[in-house]
């Protein structure tokens, strides 16, 4: 699929009245309809964001009145925790050892509900209730439907292997949402977004959904194989991902007595790029708040993402590399 021609076509603005602009508007609507279809919502409810993280603010603040209680969870993303921090009346719900939000029902509150966690793969098993609900679907993408009583929701194009730099924000027509940003019009999102990125994201989600149907079983098998091997061959491992994985493409594990950054670099040197939730990791000074909230070990953590295209040889290579690197670092 050639991206360059899409961008050439999509360069002019789409909100003008010229034939090119009208043509682009039609392409955009088709792309939006494709994406909305896969996400299980009406296209009219879906809006495009050129800055995905703005969606956390729009989605939560737009439901929240100044004195209303905002409930978030201890495993929510930093963007959500920051919003809770800046609101005068917030509550942080704790999670179980399995990462399930210990939901303390408040009918008057706005609840920020993290449908799935992008570090651990934990998916919430209970149905949320509140006056209004913002759903963070950035980690679940097209895998899971929204809970039935959602008010606003946010997705990230990268979740279905779409391009970075574009996100999707939905407002349910029955919700109390009003635009929290200063505005003199009735737009939902503040600006225009790249048509090229939008079309690329629609193509990506189509492709992803088709692949997922074929590959879901394979990914689960790979997940189980990795977990089984590591449980058997390496001692003192703490898995953050549930035993019956609800998002099997993610696997998070922590190795006792191991420096996470050193493990990351050792694996990189052997050709394997993984992420880490450890504080002993150049990108963070603090350990993963998600792991800490679950009571899981934060040191020596690696997070694997199992892609549709992984091969058995790559898995073999990774397992051997992890075993060798952990042993070397524990020496």
């Amino acid at each position: 699929m050639a991206i360059a021609p899409i961008f050439e076509q999509a360069w002019p603005g789409y909100s003008k009245l010229s034939p090119e602009a009208r043509g682009l508007a039609i392409l955009r609507n088709e792309a939006l309809a494709t994406i909305a279809g896969h996400l299980g919502i009406e296209p009219e409810w879906l809006h495009v964001l050129g800055e995905t993280n703005l969606g956390f603010y729009l989605g939560i603040q737009g439901l929240l009145s100044p004195t209303q209680l905002l409930q978030v969870s201890a495993v929510d993303r930093q963007e959500v925790l920051a919003i809770a921090d800046s609101h005068s009346h917030s509550e942080i719900l704790s999670v179980s050892h399995e990462g399930q939000i210990l939901h303390n029902l408040n009918q008057e509150a706005v609840l920020a509900w993290q449908l799935g966690n992008g570090e651990t793969g934990v998916v919430q098993q209970s149905a949320p209730t509140a006056k209004s609900i913002f759903v963070d679907a950035t980690a679940t993408g097209a895998r899971l439907a929204l809970p039935t009583n959602w008010s606003t929701a946010l997705w990230d194009s990268r979740n279905w292997a779409g391009p970075e730099g574009i996100g999707f924000f939905a407002v349910h027509p029955n919700s109390d949402w009003r635009n929290p940003l200063p505005h003199n019009d009735n737009r939902t999102v503040p600006g225009e977004s790249s048509t090229g990125l939008l079309i690329a994201s629609a193509l990506a989600i189509d492709s992803w959904v088709a692949d997922e149907k074929i590959q879901a079983d394979m990914i689960l098998q790979v997940h189980r194989r990795i977990r089984g091997y590591i449980s058997e061959r390496i001692s003192d491992v703490d898995f953050a991902t549930p035993e019956n994985p609800t998002m099997p493409h993610l696997l998070s594990m922590s190795f006792l007595y191991v420096d996470g950054e050193q493990l990351l670099n050792a694996l990189l040197a052997k050709g394997f790029a993984v992420d880490s939730g450890s504080a002993c990791n150049a990108a963070n000074l603090e350990p993963s708040h998600v792991l800490a909230a679950m009571g899981k070990l934060t040191q020596g953590n690696i997070r694997l993402t199992i892609h549709h295209t992984v091969t058995p040889e790559e898995v073999d290579g990774l397992l051997v590399a992890i075993e060798e690197c952990v042993a070397a670092l524990r020496d």
Partner: peptide, 16 residues
């Protein structure tokens, strides 16, 4: 004084 100590000493105790 390392910030990971609190969660990790607790996880260590559980695991061992």
């Amino acid at each position: 004084d390392d910030p990971a100590t609190a969660p990790d000493i607790s996880a260590w105790a559980r695991m061992t």
